[in-house]
Write a protein that binds this DNA or RNA. Structure first.
Lengths: 110, 110
DNA sequence: TCGTTTGATAGCGATATTACTATCTCACTA
DNA sequence: TAGTGAGATAGTAATATCGCTATCAAACGA
């Protein structure tokens, strides 16, 4: 039974979102944001990455509509702005390949 | 309640997979493969894209372990090789934002 | 007002992607 | 064996991404 294919526009949108998420730092950031709003400094602390890098990745995600920032005093609190992201994370978590899948990949074996 | 974060190794793996999926043509290909094995020519027909492009994207996905090809005579039948992909598609489909989400994006709201 | 903290950007070099054309390798068949 | 259809791959130019340093701009506190 054929699944209904994604509408072309939705697919393009989805690909764009997925691409932005396909980066280790950005993926970790959204994972951290899943727990609630975080400031750049907080994220920076968790990621142990230079501030500029964190800010850059946030900017990229912001312009993709994945996260949103809200200024409060001298801080900017970031949060997830696209519901699809949460489900993607959920999915990735529940799909955590049990170490076998990666191993049994043929790929240049021998 | 904090969700258990993705294991770092799994996260890196996941980011890699997600990145590969984050491309309109590749995303469409896996969507087509969801319906079952397809040859390159079949995919090419659906995608209306030059053969080399399809083959290249397949190669990229193959080397990422996302799809697998099996030769049968002069044809190569491709199929999805990573279970996570199917769930990702599922997730994207069930999240198909009904044109509203994109519109109500805050984005530089004051 | 001066210094500090928090965050955003500019600019840059290195590297990766993209999509294309042209070519090459198979497997099959006349 | 020559020809053909199905795929894979080299080569390439345009563009995008990555992560860095340096700087800029607010907001705040002394």
């Amino acid at each position: 039974m054929r699944q209904a294919p994604l509408d072309p526009r939705v697919l393009a949108e989805a690909a764009e979102m997925v691409r932005v998420l396909g980066h280790p730092v950005r993926l970790r950031i959204v994972e951290l944001l899943e727990a609630g709003e975080q400031t750049v400094t907080q994220l920076q602390g968790c990621l142990e990455a230079p501030q500029a890098l964190v800010s850059q990745q946030l900017a990229r995600m912001r312009s993709a509509g994945i996260v949103a920032g809200r200024r409060a005093g001298s801080n900017v609190w970031y949060s997830i702005a696209d519901a699809r992201v949460v489900r993607m994370l959920d999915c990735l978590r529940h799909c955590d390949l049990p170490a076998g899948e990666a191993a049994q990949r043929p790929e240049a074996q021998q």
